[in-house]
Protein backbone atom coordinates (compact mmCIF):
# COMPACT_ATOMS: atom_id res chain seq x y z
CA UNK A 1 0.00 0.00 0.00
CA UNK A 2 2.71 2.47 0.94
CA UNK A 3 4.65 3.79 -1.95
CA UNK A 4 8.31 2.95 -2.26
CA UNK A 5 9.57 6.43 -1.81
CA UNK A 6 7.90 6.84 1.56
CA UNK A 7 10.85 5.59 3.45
CA UNK A 8 13.26 7.93 1.77
CA UNK A 9 11.03 10.89 2.44
CA UNK A 10 10.56 10.15 6.08
CA UNK A 11 13.06 11.08 8.65
CA UNK A 12 12.72 8.87 11.66
CA UNK A 13 13.28 10.88 14.75
CA UNK A 14 15.44 9.38 17.46
CA UNK A 15 15.52 10.10 21.14
CA UNK A 16 13.03 12.00 23.20
CA UNK A 17 11.55 14.45 20.79
CA UNK A 18 11.97 17.32 18.46
CA UNK A 19 12.34 20.33 20.67
CA UNK A 20 9.24 22.09 19.47
CA UNK A 21 7.04 19.06 19.56
CA UNK A 22 8.09 18.25 23.08
CA UNK A 23 7.10 21.69 24.18
CA UNK A 24 3.78 21.37 22.51
CA UNK A 25 2.86 17.89 23.54
CA UNK A 26 3.15 18.12 27.25
CA UNK A 27 3.57 15.46 29.89
CA UNK A 28 0.80 13.11 28.89
CA UNK A 29 2.59 12.18 25.75
CA UNK A 30 5.98 11.90 27.40
CA UNK A 31 4.52 9.17 29.53
CA UNK A 32 3.82 7.33 26.31
CA UNK A 33 4.14 3.62 26.87
CA UNK A 34 2.87 3.62 30.43
CA UNK A 35 -0.38 5.32 29.62
CA UNK A 36 -2.21 2.34 28.18
CA UNK A 37 -4.09 1.58 31.34
CA UNK A 38 -5.73 4.98 31.26
CA UNK A 39 -7.25 4.30 27.87
CA UNK A 40 -10.19 2.34 29.09
CA UNK A 41 -11.51 5.59 30.50
CA UNK A 42 -12.03 7.02 27.02
CA UNK A 43 -15.72 6.70 26.42
CA UNK A 44 -16.93 5.91 22.96
CA UNK A 45 -20.26 7.55 22.32
CA UNK A 46 -22.41 5.50 20.03
CA UNK A 47 -25.86 6.89 19.50
CA UNK A 48 -27.67 9.60 21.36
CA UNK A 49 -26.04 11.19 24.37
CA UNK A 50 -26.71 14.18 26.50
CA UNK A 51 -24.43 17.10 25.78
CA UNK A 52 -24.37 20.11 28.02
CA UNK A 53 -23.33 23.44 26.62
CA UNK A 54 -23.25 26.88 28.15
CA UNK A 55 -25.57 28.72 25.83
CA UNK A 56 -25.97 32.45 26.26
CA UNK A 57 -24.71 32.17 29.77
CA UNK A 58 -26.91 29.31 30.88
CA UNK A 59 -26.38 25.58 30.88
CA UNK A 60 -28.33 23.87 28.14
CA UNK A 61 -28.53 20.13 27.70
CA UNK A 62 -29.36 18.52 24.39
CA UNK A 63 -29.69 14.86 23.56
CA UNK A 64 -28.05 14.35 20.19
CA UNK A 65 -26.41 11.77 18.03
CA UNK A 66 -22.74 12.48 17.35
CA UNK A 67 -23.41 13.68 13.80
CA UNK A 68 -25.67 16.53 14.89
CA UNK A 69 -24.00 19.85 14.24
CA UNK A 70 -23.93 22.62 16.77
CA UNK A 71 -26.13 24.54 14.36
CA UNK A 72 -28.85 21.90 14.25
CA UNK A 73 -28.70 21.47 18.01
CA UNK A 74 -29.18 25.19 18.56
CA UNK A 75 -31.98 25.46 16.06
CA UNK A 76 -33.92 22.24 16.34
CA UNK A 77 -33.24 21.22 19.94
CA UNK A 78 -32.90 24.52 21.77
CA UNK A 79 -35.11 26.43 19.35
CA UNK A 80 -32.56 29.21 19.17
CA UNK A 81 -33.48 29.84 15.57
CA UNK A 82 -31.88 33.26 15.29
CA UNK A 83 -28.79 31.47 14.01
CA UNK A 84 -29.48 30.52 10.41
CA UNK A 85 -28.59 27.61 8.20
CA UNK A 86 -27.48 29.14 4.92
CA UNK A 87 -25.17 26.87 2.98
CA UNK A 88 -24.42 24.27 5.68
CA UNK A 89 -20.84 24.01 4.43
CA UNK A 90 -18.93 26.90 5.91
CA UNK A 91 -19.36 29.06 2.86
CA UNK A 92 -21.73 31.82 3.90
CA UNK A 93 -21.43 32.80 7.55
CA UNK A 94 -25.18 32.88 8.28
CA UNK A 95 -24.60 30.52 11.20
CA UNK A 96 -21.90 32.60 12.86
CA UNK A 97 -21.92 32.20 16.66
CA UNK A 98 -19.25 32.60 19.29
CA UNK A 99 -17.62 29.64 20.94
CA UNK A 100 -15.60 30.68 23.95
CA UNK A 101 -15.71 34.19 22.59
CA UNK A 102 -14.47 33.42 19.07
CA UNK A 103 -16.68 33.72 16.02
CA UNK A 104 -17.13 30.44 14.19
CA UNK A 105 -19.51 28.72 11.78
CA UNK A 106 -21.93 26.63 13.83
CA UNK A 107 -22.51 24.35 10.82
CA UNK A 108 -18.87 23.33 10.83
CA UNK A 109 -18.68 21.75 14.24
CA UNK A 110 -20.54 19.02 16.06
CA UNK A 111 -22.61 19.75 19.13
CA UNK A 112 -20.83 16.97 20.99
CA UNK A 113 -17.44 18.51 20.25
CA UNK A 114 -18.47 21.67 22.05
CA UNK A 115 -19.53 19.99 25.27
CA UNK A 116 -18.97 22.31 28.20
CA UNK A 117 -18.02 25.22 25.99
CA UNK A 118 -19.63 28.61 26.07
CA UNK A 119 -21.77 29.35 23.03
CA UNK A 120 -23.23 32.77 22.33
CA UNK A 121 -25.92 33.30 19.74
CA UNK A 122 -27.71 36.40 18.51
CA UNK A 123 -30.28 35.80 21.23
CA UNK A 124 -27.53 36.26 23.81
CA UNK A 125 -25.86 39.30 22.28
CA UNK A 126 -27.66 41.84 24.36
CA UNK A 127 -28.49 40.84 27.88
CA UNK A 128 -31.11 43.46 28.43
CA UNK A 129 -33.99 44.61 26.26
CA UNK A 130 -31.73 47.35 25.01
CA UNK A 131 -30.24 46.88 21.61
CA UNK A 132 -26.56 46.22 21.18
CA UNK A 133 -25.06 49.25 19.40
CA UNK A 134 -24.56 47.15 16.29
CA UNK A 135 -28.19 46.14 16.23
CA UNK A 136 -29.24 49.77 16.39
CA UNK A 137 -26.72 50.73 13.72
CA UNK A 138 -27.90 47.93 11.44
CA UNK A 139 -31.43 49.30 11.63
CA UNK A 140 -30.41 52.89 11.11
CA UNK A 141 -28.20 52.13 8.12
CA UNK A 142 -30.59 49.56 6.65
CA UNK A 143 -27.81 46.99 6.77
CA UNK A 144 -30.02 44.10 5.74
CA UNK A 145 -32.85 43.33 3.42
CA UNK A 146 -34.23 39.82 3.78
CA UNK A 147 -32.50 39.61 7.16
CA UNK A 148 -31.44 36.00 6.84
CA UNK A 149 -27.72 36.72 7.09
CA UNK A 150 -28.18 39.43 9.70
CA UNK A 151 -27.63 37.40 12.86
CA UNK A 152 -24.38 36.11 11.43
CA UNK A 153 -23.33 39.54 10.21
CA UNK A 154 -23.91 41.07 13.62
CA UNK A 155 -22.22 38.27 15.55
CA UNK A 156 -19.27 38.56 13.20
CA UNK A 157 -19.16 42.35 13.26
CA UNK A 158 -19.20 42.46 17.05
CA UNK A 159 -15.93 40.56 17.06
CA UNK A 160 -14.49 42.85 14.40
CA UNK A 161 -15.26 45.84 16.59
CA UNK A 162 -13.92 44.10 19.65
CA UNK A 163 -10.61 43.57 17.86
CA UNK A 164 -10.57 47.18 16.71
CA UNK A 165 -12.45 47.68 13.47
CA UNK A 166 -10.07 48.43 10.60
CA UNK A 167 -10.39 51.97 9.33
CA UNK A 168 -9.94 51.30 5.65
CA UNK A 169 -12.73 49.90 3.53
CA UNK A 170 -10.47 47.11 2.34
CA UNK A 171 -9.51 46.20 5.88
CA UNK A 172 -13.06 46.26 7.16
CA UNK A 173 -14.23 44.25 4.19
CA UNK A 174 -11.54 41.65 4.69
CA UNK A 175 -12.65 41.23 8.28
CA UNK A 176 -16.23 40.67 7.12
CA UNK A 177 -15.59 38.55 4.04
CA UNK A 178 -16.87 35.44 5.76
CA UNK A 179 -20.40 36.77 5.85
CA UNK A 180 -22.24 36.69 2.58
CA UNK A 181 -25.27 38.89 2.06
CA UNK A 182 -27.03 37.80 -1.09
CA UNK A 183 -29.33 40.83 -0.95
CA UNK A 184 -26.01 42.67 -0.90
CA UNK A 185 -26.43 45.22 1.85
CA UNK A 186 -22.65 45.33 1.97
CA UNK A 187 -22.09 49.10 1.94
CA UNK A 188 -24.79 49.51 4.56
CA UNK A 189 -23.20 46.81 6.70
CA UNK A 190 -19.86 48.60 6.56
CA UNK A 191 -21.55 51.85 7.52
CA UNK A 192 -23.32 50.19 10.43
CA UNK A 193 -20.10 48.69 11.74
CA UNK A 194 -18.35 52.02 11.46
CA UNK A 195 -21.15 53.75 13.32
CA UNK A 196 -21.22 51.16 16.05
CA UNK A 197 -17.43 51.20 16.35
CA UNK A 198 -17.53 54.97 16.68
CA UNK A 199 -20.22 54.73 19.33
CA UNK A 200 -22.83 56.25 17.07
CA UNK A 201 -25.14 53.28 16.74
Amino acid sequence: MAKNDDITRREFVEGTAVAGAAAAIGPSFMASSAAASALSSVQIVDGASEVTLQVNGKPAAVTVDPHVTLLDALREKLQLTGTKKGCNQGGCGACTVWIDGERVNACMTLAIMQEGRSVTTIEGLSESDELHPLQAAFIENDAFQCGFCTSGQIMSAAKVIEAGAPETTDGLSEAMNGNICRCSAYPQIRAAIRDAAAGKG
Binding site: S28, A31, A35, L39, S41, V42, I44, I112, M113
Partner: peptide
Protein backbone atom coordinates in the same frame (compact mmCIF):
# COMPACT_ATOMS: atom_id res chain seq x y z
CA UNK B 1 -20.60 7.78 13.49
CA UNK B 2 -19.35 7.01 16.95
CA UNK B 3 -17.43 9.62 18.81
CA UNK B 4 -14.64 9.70 21.33
CA UNK B 5 -12.72 12.52 22.89
CA UNK B 6 -9.45 11.26 24.30
CA UNK B 7 -7.51 13.66 26.46
CA UNK B 8 -4.03 12.45 25.69
CA UNK B 9 -2.12 11.80 22.50
CA UNK B 10 -1.54 8.26 23.66
CA UNK B 11 -5.16 7.46 24.09
Amino acid sequence: FSYARPDTVDS
